[in-house]
Amino acid sequence: MDLSNINPILLVASIMISATPILLAAIGEMVVEKSGVLNLGVEGMMITGAVIGFIIAINTGSPLLGFATAAIAGAVLSLAFGVLTQIFLSNQVATGLGLTLVGLGLSSLLGKPYEGQKTVTLPKLDIPILSDLPVVGRMLFSHDIMVYVSLGIVVAVWAFLKHTRAGLILRAVGESHESAHALGYKVIRVRMLAIMFGGACAGLGGAYLSLVRVPQWTEGMTAGAGWIALAIVVFASWRAGRVLVGAYLFGGITVLQLNLQAAGMTWGVQYLSMSPYLITILVLVLISSNRSRGSHNAPANLGQTFHATR
């Protein structure tokens, strides 16, 4: 094994690339959960975004159009979840699982003709001055636009939840839908919008996988990224800043694992590949065992069905 082949500059750069899909999906899911809805269909929405984004990009030659359509596709799919859980009052856990199964089926159906094809990916931005900085320029300032968009979304979500009235309403709905309803807020409408935002973010995250990170379409290519995004929301104890930390941490583990494989670590490739999942479990245990800040922070009405009786 030759560790000197691992270039630290490229390592940081690739951590940012590999963290972006889970960051996008996780920040979207955090907003959904803040509104009191638990959508376990992140994986399904991500993979649908991945396939739709890929198909559109390949047919139009525009990756940006691919991202936009992927976001719409994710939102439309999440709307199905929203209608079932909010209007038909179905169980959120079961419906979320169903959404994942539907998404996996739909994506492999749509993606079959596109397997193995290549697409144009997003160009790396060349930011004047910043990109030319030594070391830091290569590390942080020569990525494609979606990396910065994802960071922008995190800041926007933080500001929205913390400093706007609409954000306050959304949090109120998540903490106590009965009280929010009594105050005259439209609980179902707020939740629907949050669900669609989460869907759009998951769609973007999926498209980032198929258009930038890999960039190719293979069946089941999200390989649990959506579930890791869900775990990151718990890890982050529902705070935007910690979602960012969590996503980059997990991105780091994935990249490090791939780098070790590439550096010629011959024994147990499978053991390295399972490490992100094992570490997810470990982190979940650490977070939930620390009662002072872990599950304590969860929105009080998370996962509960709201039915206005009055």
Binding site: A80, G98, L101, V102, G105, S108, L109
Partner: peptide, 14 residues
């Protein structure tokens, strides 16, 4: 395509 059956089963649950 084989995947359409998977979608079919998912639809059933939905």
């Amino acid at each position: 395509p084989g995947a359409s059956i998977q979608l079919f089963q998912g639809m059933l649950l939905f």
